[in-house]
């Protein structure tokens, strides 16, 4: 029986019971937490290196009650959503055209591929010189960080749309414009949603890097200040908040896809 269960669990792609799946997830998370408690409360690791859970909890309550955590979070969210929104607004249509129109690809592909391999972190000093260390600079870093990646990923999605769909619509009387608006665009939507979801994760990375390099607010700044003041508990608060926000955003994308594109989830 036990051998039967094990062989079932380790058969590739075989579905497993929902409660086993949840059980495994909870067990792993609990184990990590228990390990954390063991390492800190037994004094195995010093508190200035790894703070105990209650110290992190206390730092969280403190930062929450003096309003600074919410302020930094709000600023970070504002920066990331602005940069991400502006980038997506241009990258989605441009990527769709780049993947399906050779002329658009010929025009912008050389620039895109050059910029794509240029780490945006290398541009941060230049951006600071040009536009300072405020809100606009963070938006610019996020924009440049995700824009060229988005455009390439979405161009690929667009190029993968099967030509038979176009042929079928032409023989149903569609004009070229109708083929673009009624076939190409809806056909790319699942891939576009996936691309947005992936690049949103990258946007968080670029945001925190930009805030660590030069900033006067935001979660990255809060973490950096905590390091300078030797408050590892506050660093952990910052990391946990960023992780939590990332998780919530990812779930939001997942539900948005199921809601907006029901045909991708029905069976």
């Amino acid at each position: 029986m036990a051998a039967g269960l094990l062989s079932r669990l380790f058969t590739p792609k075989r579905p497993i019971a929902k409660n086993i799946e949840i059980g495994i997830g909870v067990t792993v998370a609990m184990s990590l937490f228990v390990a954390w408690c063991l390492l800190t409360y037994t004094g195995l690791v010093s508190a200035s290196f790894l703070p105990a859970p209650d110290a992190v909890g206390a730092a969280f309550v403190e930062k929450l009650s003096d309003g600074s955590l919410l302020r930094h979070t709000r600023i970070s969210l504002y920066e990331i959503y602005t940069g991400f929104f502006l980038s997506s607004l241009i990258a989605v249509p441009l990527g769709i055209f780049m993947g399906s129109f050779r002329i658009v690809a010929a025009t912008i592909e050389p620039i895109v591929n050059f910029m794509r391999y240029l780490p945006v972190t290398a541009l941060i000093p230049l951006l600071i010189l040009w536009i300072g260390i405020g809100f606009e600079e963070k938006v610019a870093v996020i924009f440049l960080g995700v824009f060229f990646q988005q455009i390439v990923l979405i161009a690929d999605v667009s190029a993968q749309v099967h030509e038979d769909l176009f042929k079928a619509s032409y023989t149903l009387g569609a004009t070229r414009r109708q083929v673009v608006t009624r076939v190409l665009v809806p056909a790319t939507m699942p891939g576009v949603m996936d691309t947005l979801r992936i690049t949103m994760g990258w946007a968080w990375t670029f945001l925190v890097v930009a805030e660590l390099v030069a900033s006067s607010s935001g979660l990255g700044y809060m973490i950096l200040q905590a390091m300078r003041g030797l408050h590892p508990a506050t660093i952990f608060v910052g990391i946990l908040v960023i992780g939590f926000l990332g998780l919530v955003t990812d779930l939001a994308f997942k539900y948005a896809k199921a809601l907006l594109l029901p045909w991708t989830t029905v069976r």
């Binding site: 099967h162 038979d164 769909l165 042929k167 079928a168 032409y170 023989t171 149903l172 009387g173 076939v183 809806p186 056909a187 939507m189 594109l261 045909w263």
Partner: peptide, 18 residues
């Protein structure tokens, strides 16, 4: 191409989002 000549393909060329 034109709507006066409708075509049915071997692959199922339906629009999956409709």
């Amino acid at each position: 191409p034109g709507a006066d000549r409708g075509m049915v393909f071997q692959s199922y060329s339906l629009f999956p989002w409709l």
